[in-house]
Amino acid sequence: MALETSLEAIPDDEGVRFVLELTNTGDQPATLTFRDAGKADFVVVDGDTECWRWSDGQLFAQMLTTEELAPGESLQLEAVWEHPTPGDYDVVCELKTMDGGEARTTLTV
């Protein structure tokens, strides 16, 4: 499976919108098997300190689900961090598939 990931952090007046894009760059369909209904988790860290986690306080159905991406097809997963504290951060998006994976970016608020 040839899967390319990209992560964007887009600040605006309401907070920061995170967009994870998964693109099948191969020539065969790619099947993603997710461990739960959350599909991905977005985490903001400052050094070794976790500042915000999208999944905190949320519950997700614990069931396996699949998504199939045709060659060239993309899937976007999004989250919003409302009322962020100004600063410089690292952002990690943990993909909750059976194969795992993550994408990273930096952010200045």
Rank of each mutant, 00 (worst) to 15 (best):
M1I: 12
A2M: 15
A2T: 06
A2Y: 04
L3E: 01
E4G: 05
T5M: 08
T5D: 04
S6G: 05
S6W: 15
S6Q: 14
S6D: 13
S6P: 09
L7G: 07
L7Y: 07
L7I: 07
L7Q: 10
A9C: 09
I10C: 04
I10S: 02
P11R: 02
P11G: 03
P11M: 06
D12G: 15
D12C: 07
E14P: 08
E14G: 06
E14V: 05
G15E: 00
V16Q: 00
V16G: 00
V16K: 01
R17G: 12
F18T: 00
F18A: 01
F18G: 00
V19N: 02
L20S: 11
L22C: 02
L22P: 00
T23I: 12
N24Q: 14
T25Y: 00
D27P: 00
D27T: 01
Q28P: 02
P29A: 01
T31I: 05
T31E: 09
L32K: 00
L32P: 00
T33F: 14
F34K: 01
R35E: 04
D36N: 10
D36K: 09
A37W: 09
A37R: 06
A37L: 10
G38C: 13
K39F: 13
K39G: 13
A40C: 01
A40F: 01
A40M: 15
A40W: 01
F42N: 01
V43D: 15
V43G: 10
V43S: 08
V44Q: 00
V44N: 00
G47E: 11
D48L: 08
D48N: 12
D48C: 06
E50W: 08
E50V: 04
W52D: 01
R53T: 09
W54P: 05
W54D: 07
W54E: 11
W54G: 15
S55F: 09
D56K: 06
D56N: 13
Q58P: 04
A61W: 07
A61G: 09
L64Q: 05
L64D: 04
L64I: 15
L64A: 10
T65Q: 03
T65P: 13
T66Y: 02
T66R: 05
E67Y: 09
E68N: 09
L69M: 08
A70F: 10
A70T: 15
A70E: 12
P71N: 02
G72Y: 03
G72F: 07
G72C: 14
S74I: 11
L75Q: 03
L75A: 05
Q76C: 05
E78H: 11
E78N: 10
A79W: 06
A79R: 10
A79V: 06
V80Y: 15
V80R: 05
V80W: 13
E82M: 14
P84D: 12
T85H: 14
P86F: 07
G87N: 03
G87M: 11
D88F: 03
Y89G: 09
D90S: 06
V91Y: 07
V91K: 08
V92K: 05
C93E: 14
C93V: 10
E94P: 14
E94W: 08
T97G: 07
T97L: 03
T97A: 08
G100M: 09
G101W: 13
G101I: 02
G101T: 03
E102L: 06
E102H: 15
A103R: 02
T105P: 02
T105V: 12
T105W: 07
T108S: 07
T108R: 09
V109S: 12
V109C: 11
V109Y: 05
